[in-house]
């Protein structure tokens, strides 16, 4: 299978030690990788560690890259996905910062504060449900619904079949809905 990879020229240049090509690749992919790592770990520092490691691996891999086997961006996502799994297995520090932060004092009298609080509560409910998912289900939700990758792209990044991905997604959505309903019922009651 031959694929037209938009990154291929920069990978060839990077393999020859071209710093500008490395910089272009990092700028082109870092936002997406940061988003995946941030949603999975919940903290900026953990996400940066993961993305940094993914790009360092990119630099090591560039010279041995086999063109046409896979898109470079897919490989980069796969590395990031695996680094996220490693990180989650080592520590559970997700969303501690978001949950522990207090609103600034000047916001107390601000008429928009209610809306901010509501948005935060709504977001925390979604994220709490997301965080309680098993890691593969969580990854499927992050890739498909947060980052809007196609099922094909997400399955490739997770190194699973599309059928397996769809099954993970269906189970994850069901669990999240149930969790959020329960949380809402507890809050009302």
């Amino acid at each position: 299978m031959s694929l037209e990879d938009p990154d291929i020229e920069d990978i060839r240049l990077l393999a020859r030690g071209d710093a500008a090509a490395a910089s272009r690749l990092v700028l082109r992919h870092s936002d997406r990788l940061m988003a995946v790592a941030y949603r999975m770990t919940g903290t900026r520092s953990a996400a940066e560690d993961i993305v940094q490691e993914a790009f360092i691996r990119m630099m090591r891999q560039a010279a041995d890259w086999q063109e046409g086997k896979a898109l470079f961006s897919t490989w980069l996502h796969r590395v990031t996905v695996n680094l996220c799994y490693d990180r989650l297995r080592k520590a559970s520090t997700r969303y501690e910062q978001a949950a522990g932060d207090d609103l600034p004092e000047q916001m107390a009298d601000d008429p928009g504060a209610d809306a901010v609080l509501e948005a935060r509560e709504r977001g925390l409910a979604v994220r709490a449900a997301l965080d309680r998912l098993p890691e593969r289900q969580k990854m499927a939700i992050v890739l498909c619904h947060y980052e809007e990758l196609s099922n094909h792209e997400a399955a490739e990044a997770m190194d699973i079949s599309i059928e397996a991905l769809e099954s993970l997604l269906a189970r994850a959505r069901r669990l999240m809905r149930k969790d959020m309903k329960l949380a809402a019922a507890l809050a009302d009651g």
Binding site: A119, R122, G123, I141
Partner: peptide, 19 residues
């Protein structure tokens, strides 16, 4: 509805860029 809630969460709490 869940996917819409996720989209709102993404807008409310965008992922930070690489420092």
């Amino acid at each position: 509805q869940l996917i819409a809630a996720i989209a709102r969460d993404r807008a409310d709490d965008p992922a930070p860029p690489l420092g």
